[in-house]
Amino acid sequence: MVEDLLMKVLRGLVGVVAVILFLSLNVLFLTWMERKVIARIHVRYGPNRAGPYGLLQPIADMLKLLTKEDIVPEKADKLVYNLAPVVAFLFALLPAAAIGIGSGLIAADVGVGVLYITAVASLSTLAVLMAAWGSNNKYSLLGGMRTAAQSLSYEIPLVLSMIGIVAIVGSLSTQDIVAAQSQTWFGIIPKWFIFYQPLAFIVFFAAVVAEMGRIPFDLPESESELVAGFHTEYSGMKFAMFMFAEYIHFVVGSALVVTLFLGGWHLPVISPMVENLGMLKYLVQVAIFVAKMYVIIFVLMWVRGTLTRTKVDHVLSFGWKGLLPLALANVVITGVVLSI
């Protein structure tokens, strides 16, 4: 009993440290990768001064942000203003706990997995609204209101597009969902849910990009009209925390796409080969998962370098009139097929 409790506490602590470490390393790398990829699309070099290929740029950026002066606007709602970056960072970390990067390699295998993830992910809107209101700035406020409208609109198709998968698997746990995608046709074509639920994949992908607030859905901080949206008034470390939270959303969103639709840590030919290799198996699983995750991340950066920002009314009407009916149709079709 006591030993159980101690093991639980210990496992929880290890999980927390592992999640934060995994996210931090990826976020640091992503800030470099994003600038580099966008630069190549623009036919520029991108960061190339700090370290080989500019790889030390994120560390230089971090040092710069850490040593910057912290400015609090005089008319700000001080308590809310100072609390917002912390809340944003905390709520960004929470969903990652229920995403596994290997079989059993998960911080908390919550029984209601994907529901938990969407629930705590929806909380980050709260932090954005706190920042928007606390800053007492019209650009922040407009950015915050856009965030609220956008994330509420896209949450519905996001949740609906997952129902098909949950109905097929019969479980909400991310571990079970990945396990259900381990089989193959003829040993080569993987039985991933992207093939069973193509419509849901399109809806989910669009909705996830909107929830992340990336181009073409980055109205909350469209710099051409709103300076920087909800974090206009933030500087130094507080600004860094918002950036960090944003990139964590990026990692978590991509990881969620991989978990739900791309078979998680399974790969047709390689996965059966390493099944009996002990510890090495987990290394390969993590490598496969991370590789898939970076494919999604690269596609999203590519999208950012290619597409333009959509108008705010178009974004909202696309969510309600485009994605929502598609998601509902997917639920109905899946329901009918499953009950036959």
């Binding site: 929806s122 909380l123 609220a148």
Partner: peptide, 11 residues
């Protein structure tokens, strides 16, 4: 969390 903290409070 989804309905109250994430939905109603945001509204």
């Amino acid at each position: 969390v989804l309905v109250y903290a994430g939905g109603v409070v945001v509204l």
